[in-house]
Design a binder for these strands. Sequence first.
DNA 1: CTGTTAGCGCGTTCAT
DNA 2: ATGAACGCGCTAACAG
Lengths: 335, 335
Amino acid sequence: MITIKDVARVAGVSTSTVSRVVRKQGKVGKTCRAKVQKVIDELGYRPNINAQALVSKKSNSLGVVIPKVSMPFFGTLACGAEEATIENNFRVLISNAHGSEQAELDAIDSLLQHRCGAIVFHSMHCSDDTLCELAEKIPGLVFINRLIPKMAHRCVWLDNNMGAQEAAKHLISNDHKNIAVISRKDVNPDAQIRLDGFRTALNNAGLPFDNELIGFGTTADMDGGKEAVSELLDSGKKFTAILSYNDNMAIGVVHELDSRGIRVPEDISVIGFDDLLISVACIPELTTMHYPVREMAHYAANLAIELADNESSSGKTHLFMPHFIERDSVNRYSA
Amino acid sequence: MITIKDVARVAGVSTSTVSRVVRKQGKVGKTCRAKVQKVIDELGYRPNINAQALVSKKSNSLGVVIPKVSMPFFGTLACGAEEATIENNFRVLISNAHGSEQAELDAIDSLLQHRCGAIVFHSMHCSDDTLCELAEKIPGLVFINRLIPKMAHRCVWLDNNMGAQEAAKHLISNDHKNIAVISRKDVNPDAQIRLDGFRTALNNAGLPFDNELIGFGTTADMDGGKEAVSELLDSGKKFTAILSYNDNMAIGVVHELDSRGIRVPEDISVIGFDDLLISVACIPELTTMHYPVREMAHYAANLAIELADNESSSGKTHLFMPHFIERDSVNRYSA
DNA sequence: CTGTTAGCGCGTTCAT
DNA sequence: ATGAACGCGCTAACAG
């Protein structure tokens, strides 16, 4: 691997000059710059990022901690973050952390070893307190898809409550009065908040809230959706529409209904949440709430990078809104 | 950030000793090791990876070049590679390179700057020659999902021909005689090979091959699938089954058929390729060929890491086989 | 505008 | 078994 010294020697200048040319900063004579650049090109010299990071004490890389890149939602998140790094001439380090608090902490740790000062963290298993501690130690740490009250200015989050309200309102405005909800069994703050939003919408419309119209899935995927809707169906309770915690569960719901000969949306309307790619694969294509993950991750990455060298916390709030996407899984109810 | 010197000072030993303890190698007295470890834990010392990489001349990180992590296929690929890095105590650097040869070359370049010697490269836009040149410069470079004859031992690829044959055979064994193919318009080696496999299967079964039964999509996604099948349908040609280049296109096909009131599989059978998550979201769930990307990426990552410090090319071939997944989109044909 | 000097944090000899 | 010294490739003062 050819080094800055090689370039300096061949070009007949000092390493400092080469360094200046490479980083395009500092004063260098026009002819000198051209000469050095020529040698750089000829030799194919590439600065050693490790050395740069070591001496300049910053790695110019952004860490992204997510459960798993192979999940489309998180893949999209990673992509959004990556977009931001390109603008900043940064690089992305993706750390998968699936299943436990320890895994998440380890992922952060690994990023820290790389000295990446800017980190976008999607935590599912750490407590608010743990996250606060971390945030204090790492100025460039930003949380995505989570609101930590004490750290609000470091959180990029979605208004789940409003999202669920919007979804419910759309159902209600289509004359549905008996609306079931598909939720997840594990304690998940988002699920709770979306449930609250649903309840609020019902309230605002003067509709009663029925606890027995909530079905819970063990997992927040297709299987969970099937499980939850089966439970609901078997209970004998009547409903004409279903608001699902997310698209994956919603698709499970559609499959289960289909297998029981119940048509969507003719017999039962279904609305999802997230607007994953998968939502258009389903027949009927899923009406859902669009979750702007890519944009949020992009924003979060920029925030992290900014925070990492400014330390200035503007105190701003970083709240995003989901928006309604009309497709084919919701019908107007006619008794 | 606390350094090895801090630990050495507090523990009252030299930095060399600390270094030995950290890397668990070299002789260190038992009590001494314990003492140092204690200080490390107390201070929360983490070695600076950049410094380690600089001095040891290896970064212990694996680069992965793919078009885009947000695409489920590539997200899965990245995950497979990551699994391998964990075993090797490596880290993953994911470089998205979408759309052009230059983008791919830049991605490789960026990885080289990080001095990651091991790279898994999914190239879509570079010529074999370009790739060969690259491979010669980078001993730890491995190509995935592509066969470069002159570099076969550095390629981890899938037998697309056999895969297409299998798929076709399944259709044929279900008494389908008029089978249409959905392919992609752009020149893509895989598409060509799968077409060959299809033709071979037809031949082996003594069935005629009809050029007009091939529909081309501009893009290899749902839209492309719709486009291609529309063309076929509008041509008036008769067929009872469709073999699709991939799942995404197959799902587009199913949607288009559905919108025309043609039932799958009752009227027309459809078989996909890849076995993406999305294939079970569709109704009916897609019968398809499973593409073991995760396993292949895992294997490729290990190979890259091995090659990066061995330089030994075993000359082995790294060929994977897709396998048939039966679901609900194929019926037996009965005239 | 350009070169010299001094480290960054760490691993690796080589003594002891 | 342990420490001193050196250098990895580079940037950041400081001279000139």
